[in-house]
């Protein structure tokens, strides 16, 4: 999936590097250095997603976000920031960011998050009438903490279930370890012992117990994905 991206970043070398790297993933990237320019650019062209720096010289990222959301703009926005504290994250998300990434970010992480955000959008746009997710032969009910394969329930402990639900919600999209730690455990740090790998292993055992094929794909250097 190649995307048309708008990057709002006043740090020119960083912007050049990130856009370079994103182009390796076949995305088209337009870079602007200020919030005002970003609003003009968004009024003129259609973008698939915006990568928005929080601290900008004139109009800062939060103001841009609030303006766009007031104007009912639905474009997905990922906020980049050097500020890592929880209240700042909450502020960014409340202002309307789809995701909040603390700098510096690897391009794999950024790409994975872009895909996850877009994927989430499509899912939302489809209306998602039922509260269950059907993927890879699994029927998952996040509300009821239950999962079935061919009508038979698979018993999963709470954490493994949350992990599966997160992967299922983003099926066919790679989720990085940082994303999984954030969404399943609520951690904004990466512990030395790889908790995610341990739980993926446990989840795989549960999902393949009945001889079924492993639906969890390891994407080297990036993270994990549930193949549909």
């Amino acid at each position: 999936m190649n995307l048309n991206l708008l990057m709002v970043e006043d740090d020119a070398p960083l912007a050049a590097m990130l856009s370079d790297e994103l182009q390796r993933y076949d995305h088209q990237v337009t870079v602007v250095g200020d919030g005002g320019d970003a609003l003009l650019e968004l009024a003129r062209h259609r973008y698939d997603a915006v990568i928005l720096d929080r601290m900008l010289p004139k109009m800062d990222g939060i103001s841009v976000l609030e303006r766009l959301r007031r104007e009912q703009a639905t474009v997905p926005i990922i906020m980049l920031s050097a500020l890592a504290r929880a209240p700042e994250k909450v502020e960014g998300l409340e202002a309307g960011a789809d995701d909040y990434i603390v700098k510096p970010v690897t391009v794999e992480e950024l790409n994975a998050r872009l895909h996850a955000v877009l994927r989430g959008r499509r899912w939302n746009n489809a209306g998602a009438p039922s509260d269950t997710i059907e993927v890879a032969g699994l029927v998952i009910s996040p509300a009821r903490f239950r999962v079935w394969r061919d009508g038979k329930p698979i018993l999963l402990p709470k954490v493994e279930f949350k992990l599966l639900a997160e992967l299922a919600r983003n099926a066919e999209t790679v989720l990085t370890r940082a994303m999984l730690l954030e969404r399943v455990w609520g951690y904004d740090f990466i512990p030395t012992t790889n908790i995610v790998d341990v739980y993926i292993r446990r989840l795989r055992i549960k999902l393949t117990e009945d001889g079924s094929e492993d639906p969890v794909v390891t994407v080297r250097g990036v993270g994990y994905m549930l193949s549909a």
């Binding site: 590097m17 790297e21 390796r24 510096p104 690897t106 391009v107 794999e108 250097g221």
Partner: peptide, 23 residues
Amino acid sequence: AHDLRTPLARLRGQLVALARAAE
């Protein structure tokens, strides 16, 4: 630490691309 992280992240990205190309 800050300054080294950015080029290191880029290096990592290139290694990931290499690993994937050779896979």
